[in-house]
Design a protein around this nucleic acid. Structure first.
Lengths: 340, 340
DNA sequence: CAAATTTATGAAAACGGTTGCATTTATTTA
DNA sequence: TAAATAAATGCAACCGTTTTCATAAATTTG
């Protein structure tokens, strides 16, 4: 079998406790002994067993990443790899590993989280999404388990939960205002699943902007699309089929891709006849044709910050919850124009 | 502290071994006792500690996923999320977890793998890439550690390694032949980092196809691009600047996106003046303009198969190595036309 | 120089499970 | 009905660490 701490102890002619102390760089070890032990470790090519370690000091050096139940489908959304890239970069600095959830229904995800927590499989958790009526947050708070939410918590005392978010109301307002400045008055909004908090917030911003400009809010101009194939296309057709169709559209970048393709089929020119602005600014958004105007929400940074916040919490568990708002930026490219 | 097997044992008035057996569904337990134990488990909301378990039966129920050292950058490539999606789907069926590597240099990745193996942190490993002169494969074979390679192994006895791959030589040949059938004779090839096996194989196929058609192989038509930003664009400019520039181009889809954008700047029309075919057929490839013709390599299935193969190996460690070739398919869209 | 400290190390008890073997009890066999 | 067998359960060792506490050796103090 593999070489254990006992083998090293024997080889170095010391007790296992001494080896353990050398490993931990304890000060109470004579240089001479330390040298001998280290030599034995090298000679035998010893590596401490991770599970034994975790068991003994009740810490795993790994972080659980919880994806939406639709992970199956949501990995198709560039948001997740990008945010994980940020998390990974930060986790790597402190030598933490990443453990991925794989559940495919809400129920399964809940069970998985429960396992991670109660089996002590991870030291902390990052929730990569936030939904209305989420069960996970109350559960984790109840258990007092260290976690960070990516998004805004829809709970009674949001100030008690650690989270990283964009100011989504403001992004919603910003894109809408940008379009009204371009003289658009009929502005359509295509949104994804309606129980996502981010969706709610963006819509809120959209409404605020319209009200400030004294423009009417037409419910026909707000469409939710299903997360399945062609959802974006269907939503687009729906929204453009109302009596006075919008002259401008707001949607998530992936939907914008769908729209841009459909628009070509229909012979509608962008931006001459229809202005479009997207949310999220994925790496590929720049490669659309025309290159799309989009709100950059700094996905990578969202990942970095949530990992950093979780480390902060782990290092000092009893402090008050902290929050971080990651800045956004409107990236103007070629999918919008002033209404004639 | 958390509730342990001991608490359950006391509550059910049995020994811990009995609880353990109930957990394992051992046959030698009376229905009456099993019922009582299960009730106690429920009442106390007991979940076995994962590390204690791993330690005792030397199995972790988790699979290590090794990304290229450039994981930092490579998560920007849709290939990885998609292959992980496949792996995750399959792993989930058997209740296995996924552990992600985060190393950012070859050296770090190597250390990480070493840790996973020798600390027994995972039961098996999937290598998500294969390089020339890779150190990982010899190491894992030496250790006789269960792993599956995604790609073709460049080692002395490939039949001894478990792997899942496409027939990349054939895909290279196929796209080239497709273009020659469209009467193209000057066909450019843009490749990514040259130490990737897949790159080598595709080029091989390209060469074979040209030879069969009695077309000359012009080294000016073969360009490698760096993995950094704008790499694709630079490579495109380079390849189009030779005396008789290609009338058709072959590249990975992400590069094609770059090319399509550059092409617009330069006023070159696709497919009228330049035909392009891509490798990989990412979900977004269809959304390019024009929608790109691409070789679908079934990335999701690559993930599924590699996980399945690894399970096969774990369940029966002493059998001969197995391999799987995942089929490909040329998806014709609108980026190619017959040369006039 | 003996007593009091300090320093370095070891023995053993956790951590929370699994499992081989022994033991008790219930059932079958002759 | 006693002996043999099978079924159900418990005891205790083990997985590979960390860590508390005790102890021996070295050093300082009065």
């Amino acid at each position: 079998m593999a070489v254990t701490i006992k083998d090293v102890a024997i080889a170095a002619n010391v007790a296992t406790s001494t080896v353990s102390r050398v490993l931990a760089n304890s000060s109470k070890i004579s240089p001479e002994t330390a040298r001998r032990v280290r030599k034995a470790i090298d000679d035998l090519n010893y590596h401490p067993n991770h599970h034994a370690r975790s068991l003994a000091n009740n810490s795993t050096k790994t972080i659980g990443l919880i994806m939406p139940s639709s992970a199956h489908v949501s990995f198709q959304n560039p948001f997740f790899p990008e945010v994980i890239r940020g998390i990974s970069t930060e986790a790597h600095k402190k030598n933490y590993g990443l453990y991925l959830s794989t559940g495919q229904t809400d129920e399964e995800v809940y069970e998985e989280v429960k396992q991670m927590v109660v089996e002590k499989r991870v030291d902390g958790i990052i929730l990569l999404f936030s939904l209305q009526n989420d069960q996970l947050i109350p559960f984790l708070m109840e258990e007092d388990f260290p976690f960070v939410l990516l998004g805004r918590p829809a709970v009674d005392h949001p100030e008690q939960v650690w989270y990283v978010n964009n100011d989504n109301v403001r992004t919603g307002r910003l894109v809408t205002e940008y379009l009204t400045l371009l003289k658009h008055e009929r502005i359509g909004l295509i949104l994804n699943r309606s129980d996502a908090i981010v969706t709610h917030d963006r819509m809120q911003g959209y409404r605020e902007a319209l009200e400030r400009s004294n423009l009417p809010i037409n419910d026909d101009y707000i469409v939710h699309y299903a997360d399945h194939e062609n959802g974006g296309k269907d939503a687009f057709i729906e929204i453009m089929s109302v009596p006075d169709p919008p002259t401008a559209l707001i949607a998530e970048d992936l939907v914008v891709f769908d729209v841009l393709r459909t628009v070509q089929d229909l012979g509608i020119r962008v931006p001459e006849e229809l202005s479009i602005v997207g949310f999220n600014n994925y790496m590929i958004s720049e490669l659309a044709s025309p290159p799309m105007t989009s709100i950059d929400i700094n996905i990578f940074e969202l990942g970095v910050q949530s990992m950093a916040l979780l480390f902060d919490r782990l290092e000092n568990p009893n402090q008050d919850a902290k929050q971080r708002i990651v800045p956004h930026e409107l990236i103007r490219r070629s999918s919008c124009s002033r209404l004639k």
